[in-house]
Write a protein that binds this DNA or RNA. Structure first.
Lengths: 202, 202
DNA sequence: CCTACCGATCGGTAGG
DNA sequence: CCTACCGATCGGTAGG
């Protein structure tokens, strides 16, 4: 006979809380998330909500990690098995733009928003985000470098192309989330493919 | 004989409050600014701090407008009198990168941070920010189009180049504020000049 | 997982 | 511009 509260049940509760925390933090920011409001929305007490994490800050950390996981599942997950090269980089760009245009986060790219919110606030959350962003940037520069070896030169420095692609994703996010510009996604796709060297010079 | 509290004195007080509010909001976000903490830092009462504005939200609006003014004074102000064209666009890029590298806001570009914070929160602050960003984007696209007429073609669409420049500024801001990357400014300058068509294809 | 509570702080206002 | 106060809410904890 299983206990009233099995470990699997506790894990499900935890996951349910984290999922709701990600949605709240996407709209209100990590700092704007309050345990009282989140508990009320889930029909739980504040103690029951924070309990599985120990503190609000560790709940925020779990939400940040979950957001990173959602990003990876949407953008880089579908590339698994494809060999590095122009084809893979092109698909990465398409998936990235699709992620921005039909975003799993209601408030737009979670990582971009967290960057602006946390970059001036020293602490564990900022440290973790810095790791996440540095890792994503490094992986992106490697994708660019791999594609360049199969494309005719000369090439821009891979780090510069990676910066351009990161920036274009942030610009598209702003155009979609703040400016409600319906042409943002198509423009971002063209600009990113061009910056990556995947389009002719025409 | 002047009254104890002249209009000029009131204006100075107001300006002093707005200046401090911009600094606080740059580090904590507009939502993170609290009138109690700001009043204590200025040695004032909460009522005295909010009084000249009527409410906290109108103080935030004044801070947003002031931040926009600071950005313009730093980046587009020095271009006054220069005719549109490649020379002017190049100087704009240089001033923009300099603004990001040696930023008048302690937490990095105020407008970029406000975008991420406000884009999911309907209200007067979001509406005002949207006007500011749309205006800046439009002016930038016009600068690009003017420069292109004096440069050998073919050209990328001006709106696409404007998106790329906006994005590169955001990427550089992230690299400077979150990643502490000392090569960010030089890379951003090269990438922006290249995106603007101001560099050869070498 | 809950109730019940802690001290602190929130934005705002009355009255001067 | 101040003091003194309002009701509401904050994150957290004790005890079960």
């Amino acid at each position: 006979m299983s206990p009233r509260h099995s470990a699997a049940e506790a894990a499900r509760t935890r996951e349910r809380i984290v999922r709701a925390a990600v949605l709240d933090a996407s709209l209100l920011g990590l700092e704007g998330l309050t345990v009282g409001a989140l508990a009320q929305r889930l029909g739980m007490s504040k103690a029951g909500l924070v309990g599985p994490f120990g503190s609000r800050e560790r709940l925020l950390m779990a939400a940040l990690d979950q957001a990173c996981e959602i990003f990876r599942a949407a953008v880089t997950g579908p590339l698994e098995g494809l060999p590095p090269g122009p084809e893979r980089l092109g698909r990465l760009i398409d998936g990235w733009v699709e992620y921005l245009a039909d975003c799993p986060f209601p408030g737009g790219c979670f990582i971009t928003a967290a960057t602006s919110e946390l970059d001036g606030r020293p602490g564990p959350l900022r440290d973790r985000l810095r790791e996440i962003v540095a890792s994503n940037r490094g992986a992106l520069a490697a994708e660019v470098a791999a594609a360049q070896t199969a494309l005719p030169g000369p090439h821009r420095p891979a780090a510069e192309v990676a910066s351009t692609l990161m920036g274009l994703s942030m610009a598209a996010n702003q155009e979609i989330q703040l400016l409600d510009d319906p042409s943002a996604a198509a423009r971002a796709r063209d600009a990113m493919r061009h910056a990556a060297g995947l389009l002719g010079s025409s």
